[in-house]
């Protein structure tokens, strides 16, 4: 049962990765790509780490720390990238 849940988490995470990364190749704006990347990189990775956590609960402190780091840094990076790129692009348009 535990194995099943953990495999489901891992597979869902990899599907999120695929779905969120493919828009990188299209010709959309930076912000739109950022939305899909936040699906893949934050949520997909969270689900992968959670799957690993269920698989080997022995080393939970490291994996929980990894999840916390992931959520904090990835969302902050998203905000910083959005902020910097939007103010940079406005200058180019002027």
């Amino acid at each position: 049962m535990m194995d099943f849940i953990s495999y489901t988490c891992l597979i869902v995470g990899v599907i999120f990765w695929f779905w969120g990364t493919i828009p990188l190749l299209s010709e959309r704006s930076v912000l739109f790509k950022l939305h899909s990347l936040s699906v893949s990189d934050t949520l997909g990775s969270m689900s992968i780490i959670f799957g690993l956590l269920l698989k080997i609960p022995r080393e939970w402190p490291l994996l929980v720390l990894a999840i916390v780091c992931l959520v904090l840094w990835n969302t902050m990076l998203g905000y910083v990238l959005a902020y910097c790129s939007s103010s940079g692009e406005k200058r180019e348009n002027r």
């Binding site: 990188l24 930076v30 990347l37 990189d41 990775s45 992931l70 990238l81 910097c84 790129s85």
Partner: peptide
């Protein structure tokens, strides 16, 4: 340059998760 930065951000996270895996 910003599209490149996005790609690098993605690479950074994905490699880290791969290492954990």
């Amino acid at each position: 340059i910003w599209q490149k930065m996005l790609a690098f951000a993605s690479i950074s996270t994905k490699t880290a998760i791969l290492i954990l895996f």
